[in-house]
Design a protein around this nucleic acid. Structure first.
Length: 642
DNA sequence: AGACACGCAT
């Protein structure tokens, strides 16, 4: 021990001090070991106390052994494998120890809920420690997580037989078990026939679990109904709605609940912010995201690695990559996810060399890269055309970090090779990859074929894609893109007919912009906005000014066989242009415009927006489906490589 | 002796 740690020890007694005392001293009595365990801070403390318990023979005391086990598996530094060995050393574990281990397995992230069930059946068999009311919540939770309805029903039967069905913890976990297994009628019946008052805290918990069950089944309306009808809502009810809406892709609804929560005077907490930020990111609602960040600071909500990751992701996806970097650099702690969010964000903005620098920093910081961060790294290479680097990172992922590539990684590689025009190599990868290529892979590949005008290779992939998809509108659109670019209008017409017959709908291209916290959404040729008249006047003005600046419409991106003039006008009413027109008339001159689009930006819009940025002297930041484009003074940050 | 939380290829 060095001097410093001695000082620290004397100020704040460490449990390891017990080791300095001779075994016979009063400090190694059962009660002192137990109290030392309670103040132990590190894994080392725990291991030393465990060793001490064995050395002094105190481990034979079931109370001591149970406490050692509890701190092995349920403390901050939980280590299930270590705990399991502790448990296996016990000649006759008491009920408390069984419960502890069963609970640890039922809650573990690694996911061995079945281990809980195995232990429970062993517990029943050995008869020395019959289960008590503390056993059942964990066992039911394990059934819930394993979605094991058969076992769950059996356990619930025992619960009723033993008369513990009134216990609050047993009840919530019984409801959870049915809800997680998708047996909503059973879950609701338990809630309804419980004698709890609807206003009670316990009843709120039960309803929260029911809501969660509906979300799991994708029954969003039922979930909302239960929520709306709750007599009382806790902050957890609100947070649950926000996070579940966001996770199921209902981003606007998530934000709506977030706003309503505030209107009803319920204070946001840490979890609220972490839950709502992904929805804000997806919608690109920068102003709201900034508000959330300010809220955290004003209300002294700690921006730790988790909230920090969500903020970094939000600023990246909302277009402010500099702020994302600033938040990242200011964090007290960064985990694997924080680094992934940062690197993925840089990639999204086409800042490839920065993304690769950060990857190096991450390695230096001793954070083990996950497969997710490689998606960001490969994406960066793809957007910047760094093909050799991309290949080498893929290689390192496999051979240095021993991560097996997922289909997403192959997606990045196909995209990277394809964009760079290495179509043969991309096709070879599609054919030979060890995972079965999905529609996304073929779509990336086909988009590349179209970009480089290679029909022959494209046709082979098109055939595969046709076999693979039956109801995906995007694929049909991509195919008709390819044929339209060849002028094969007959095939285009056939495809459109097929879409009609099969009732396939394509995602309508839409763009949105946030002005004063309101999200305004536009589709192609949109006429639904209250300020449509002004918007279209602005569009006309833009058309004139652009023409003066030398704009020539690029009609190769129009997929209909119609006359040139009509094509030109079709182009001019693309949703992103409408959103920009609205942005220009709604903000003071010089304000940066942030546009989000659900599809990839077309070539004509890209060149138009470059000119618009110059003619109107505005920075325009567009997030499309694949990356960010920062338009300023007639140029785009993507260097026209996208 | 608990419910809610962060990153992912077109």
């Amino acid at each position: 021990m060095n001097l410093n740690s001695n000082i620290a020890t004397s100020l704040n007694p460490s449990p390891c001090l017990a080791l300095l005392s001779p075994p016979t001293s009063p400090s190694s009595s059962p009660s002192s070991i137990i109290s030392s365990l309670k103040t132990s801070k590190t894994v080392r403390d725990l291991h030393q106390l465990h060793a001490l318990a064995i050395k002094t023979g105190l481990f034979r005391d079931p109370l001591v052994a149970a406490e050692v086990l509890r701190f092995s598996v349920l403390s901050e530094h939980r280590d299930l494998r270590y705990g399991r060995r502790v448990f296996d050393q016990m000649p006759e574990p008491n009920c408390f120890s069984w419960n502890t281990l069963i609970r640890a397995y039922s809650e573990s992230d690694g996911g061995h809920p079945s281990e809980s069930l195995l232990l429970f059946s062993r517990m029943l068999l050995c008869e020395t420690a019959p289960p008590n009311r503390y056993t059942f919540p964990s066992v039911l939770k394990a059934c819930a997580r394993a979605e094991a309805i058969q076992e769950g029903k059996q356990v619930h039967g025992q619960v009723i037989k033993l008369g513990w069905d009134d216990d609050a913890f047993v009840l919530t976990n019984s409801v959870r078990m049915y809800a997680c297994c998708g047996f909503m009628e059973d879950a609701r019946r338990l809630v309804e026939k419980s004698s709890l008052s609807p206003e009670s805290e316990a009843s709120v918990v039960l309803r929260n679990i029911v809501i969660d069950g509906y979300f799991r089944l994708g029954m969003v309306e039922e979930a909302r109904q239960v929520f709306d009808r709750m007599a009382n809502k806790s902050v957890i009810s609100w947070n649950g709605m926000i996070s579940k809406f966001a996770q199921t892709g209902h981003f606007k609804e998530a934000i709506c609940v977030f706003r309503k929560m505030q209107l009803e005077g319920v204070k946001h907490n840490y979890v609220t912010l972490v839950s709502v930020l992904p929805a804000i990111s997806r919608l690109g609602a920068l102003e709201l995201g900034e508000w959330v960040h300010a809220y955290a600071e004003k209300n002294v909500i700690e921006v730790d690695d988790v909230l920090g990751s969500a903020l970094v992701d939000m600023y990246s996806k909302c277009g402010n990559i500099n702020k994302a970097v600033q938040v990242f650099e200011g964090l007290p702690k960064r985990n694997q996810i924080t680094w992934s969010a940062m690197i993925g964000g840089l990639a999204l903005h086409g800042w490839a060399s920065e993304a690769l620098d950060y990857f190096q920093r991450m390695e230096k910081a001793g954070v083990v890269p996950s497969d997710v961060v490689f998606i960001g790294v490969l994406n960066a290479c793809s957007h910047a055309g760094l093909v050799d680097e991309g290949r080498s990172y893929f290689d390192r992922m496999v051979n240095v970090y021993r991560l097996s590539p997922r289909i997403e990684h192959y997606g990045c590689m196909v995209d990277m090779l394809g964009r760079a025009g290495l179509l043969e190599e991309a096709e070879e990868l599609v054919v030979n990859m060890p995972v079965k290529p999905d529609d996304v892979i073929y779509k990336a590949f086909l988009a590349a074929c179209k970009k480089h005008g290679d029909v022959k290779i494209g046709m082979r992939a098109a055939k595969r894609l046709m076999e693979l998809v039956s109801d995906d509108g995007d694929s049909y659109v991509l195919l008709s893109n390819l044929f339209a670019s060849l002028g094969e209008w007959d095939t285009v017409a056939k495809l459109r007919l097929m879409m009609k017959e099969l009732e396939v709908r394509k995602d309508p291209g839409c763009s949105w912009i946030t002005i004063d916290g309101m999200i305004h959404e536009f589709v192609v040729e949109d006429c639904t906005h209250p300020r449509t008249k002004e918007i279209y006047l602005m569009l006309e003005e833009m058309a004139v000014k652009l023409q003066e600046a030398g704009y020539v419409p690029d009609t190769t991106h129009v997929l209909l066989n119609i006359e040139e003039e009509k094509k030109e006008s079709t182009l001019f009413y693309h949703s992103e242009k409408i959103a920009i027109a609205f942005g220009l008339i709604s903000t003071s001159s010089g304000t940066t415009l942030h546009i989000v689009k659900n599809l990839r930006i077309c070539g004509d819009c890209h060149s138009s927006i470059k000119l618009i940025s110059k003619v109107y002297g505005r920075r325009i930041i567009v997030r499309d489906r694949s990356r960010f484009h920062h338009f300023e003074d007639g140029v785009c940050s993507c260097n026209d490589y996208w």
